[in-house]
Design a protein around this nucleic acid. Sequence first.
DNA 1: GCCAACGTTGGC
DNA 2: GCCAACGTTGGC
Length: 155
Amino acid sequence: MKKINYWLVKSEPSDYSFSDLLKEPEQTAEWDGVRNYQARNILQNEMKINDQVLYYHSNSKPSQIVGTAIVVKEGYPDFTSWDPKSKHFDPKSTPQNPKWFMVDIKADKIFKTPITLQEVKNNKKLSNMVLVKNSRLSVQPVTEIEWSIILDMSK
DNA sequence: GCCAACGTTGGC
DNA sequence: GCCAACGTTGGC
C-alpha cells in the first residue's frame, strides 16, 4: 500500500479562495505561482497523487483552515513562470529549463467548522505545526497526527 | 496599514 | 562566501 502524505497550502481568499476552487470544472486547479524554493521543492518532488492537503486562507479575517483537497497531478513545470504577462513571470525560467513547478489539486471536503489560526495556536498538540513555527511558508508538510487532530476539530 | 520575520539579491 | 539592503508575507 502506498503511503499518503499530508500537506497544507495557503492562499489569500481575495486572490483565490476555497470556494473559487469549488467552482472550477472538476473542482480542480493548477497550484501555480509559488515562487519560494522550499515550497517549490515540495511541489516538484514530494507531493504525490492522492496526498491530502489542508486548505488555509491567509491574510484573512480570521485566517483559518477551511477545507481539504487531494493531489491529482504531480509536480510539473509552472508555465506561468515564462509568461511575460503573468504576474508570477520569472525571466530565468524557460520551457527548456523550468525553474518553478506546480501540482494540480482537487477540492475534497469543506469544513463544517473552519479551524482558525488562533485555535491551532491554542492547541498544545499542534504547537509544532509549520503553520505556527514558520508562518511564511506557503506549501508545508503536516504530520499524520496533526492531520487527524485538525479533522476531528472540524467536525 | 503597520511592521516583524524571513527570503533573496548582489556588491565586495 | 559574507552580509547589508531590499522585497515579501502575513498576523495583528
